[in-house]
Amino acid sequence: MAIFEAILELADDHLVLGHRISEWCGHAPMLEEDLAMPNMALDLIGTSRTLYDHAGKLEGKGQSEDDLAYLRGEREYRNCLLVERPNEDFAHTMLRSLYFAAFMRPYWLKTLEMTNDETVRGVAGKAEKEMAYHIRHAGEWVIRLGDGTEESAARMRDAVAALHIYTDELFESSPAAAEAERAGVLPVRADLRAAWDEVIGQVFAEAFLEAPEVPYPQTGGRKGLHGEGLGHLLAEMQSVYRAHPGATW
């Protein structure tokens, strides 16, 4: 059961971030980004699908990927707070992706080395490459905006101030995740700090940004204690599915 929950946490992270990024589709600052955003959303949602499917099988109660995605409410979602933060502007959106991908890339690389779960290994092999690309795409934008115009630099600093407080949660393992780590399924989150710091440090140096001290990190997502935005996100996402119980789409 703990491993089911730990996989669900990962799946929720990917679906919720994919959903947020998909909100940009058709509204991006330039056509090239209107193509890039759905690509990144597709990577994340694709990963979430395999993880939900796997979680459902581990649980053994016959829950499909859609049951898990569409029939749980905000208190049952287990994503970290970073991924549910609203898009705000392009600076916030790119920084949020950078923070997440800079964590997930070493996470999946480590998974490839250690996991004893073949499905998780398969996900890691694919997702590691995608996260490398997300780091590159989002990182280049953080640099362009941080070292662009006065306005873009100010917006980038605002984004750092708004989002950095959510990054500590990435390195925390819930009791379920800790059990999956002990069982050799998932890597230890706290061990990935150095790899994350290195990527963020490099990008921030080129972007003229500073990582702030965070005396009071915001956490709670793994316990289902979310911000107010997640309920709206889920209400929208689940509306059609819930309006037609049992229907096939």
Binding site: L15, S22, E23, C25, P38, N39, R49, D66, E236, V240
Partner: peptide, 23 residues
Amino acid sequence: WITRAPSLRRKAALLAKVQDEGG
């Protein structure tokens, strides 16, 4: 309808489709 697609499979297909249109 991307954010409300009634299954994850449909959501992924619709995202890919809208991306094609942009392309």
